Simulated scan of single mutants.
Amino acid sequence: MSNGKENRNKWLHVRLSLEEYNQLQGNYAKTTCRKLSEYSRKILLGKPVRILYRNQSLDDFMAEMIQLRKELNLIGNNFNQAVKKLNSLSKITEYRDWLISFEVEKKLLFGKVDQIKNRINQLSDQWLL
């Protein structure tokens, strides 16, 4: 009837100072362990602990990409506001011709902005997992 998983029914109580506890929490946060008890058990029993490694240059890159995504959204919002304003002036024939060519350029710009935003999202999802 054993499923290979041993029930843990023994308790070990450990008292720590605030400084020791904070150090333990800090070290635990850098690992792949899901629970503090799992981390503590591995340390106490001398088992290997996997440490997460973060590449600072990639973190910096991601921060820049996130900022770029925000700026692209702001540019898109400003662009839409300008188009709405121009559409209100469509009574003049010169503006109508300009608006037609402008719509083509707008679609190209928004397509490229969407491609950039999607790539930033893919990179951030990939890195932040």
Rank of each mutant, 00 (worst) to 15 (best):
Y53L: 07
E64D: 15
P48R: 05
L44T: 06
I120P: 08
N73C: 07
G46K: 00
V14P: 11
L99K: 03
N27R: 14
N27I: 04
L24M: 10
Y39S: 02
E19L: 06
I116H: 02
V104K: 12
F102V: 00
Q81H: 09
D97E: 13
L86A: 12
F61C: 08
K112M: 12
Q56H: 07
R96W: 02
R15I: 12
L45D: 08
V104N: 06
K5S: 15
T31I: 05
F61W: 07
E19F: 02
E64S: 14
F102A: 06
L58F: 10
S2F: 15
K107W: 06
K35G: 07
Y21M: 06
S57H: 07
L128Q: 12
N7V: 15
W98P: 00
Q25V: 10
E94G: 09
Q115T: 11
N77P: 00
R50M: 07
K10Y: 09
L12S: 10
K42H: 11
G76Y: 02
K30D: 05
K30A: 11
G46T: 01
K35F: 13
N73T: 09
L12E: 08
I43M: 14
L89R: 08
R34V: 13
F102E: 01
N78D: 08
L86Y: 08
Q115F: 05
F61V: 07
Q23I: 07
V14R: 01
R15Y: 14
A63C: 03
D60W: 07
R50V: 13
N22F: 04
L128W: 03
I100Y: 10
R119M: 11
N9G: 09
L123M: 11
E20C: 03
M1S: 14
T32E: 09
V113C: 04
K47V: 00
G4Q: 13
R96G: 03
K106F: 08
E71P: 05
R41M: 06
G26N: 15
I116E: 01
Q25T: 05
E64W: 03
E20G: 01
N9I: 11
N3T: 14
R69W: 03
T93D: 11
E103W: 01
Y39H: 01
I66A: 12
E105C: 02
S40C: 15
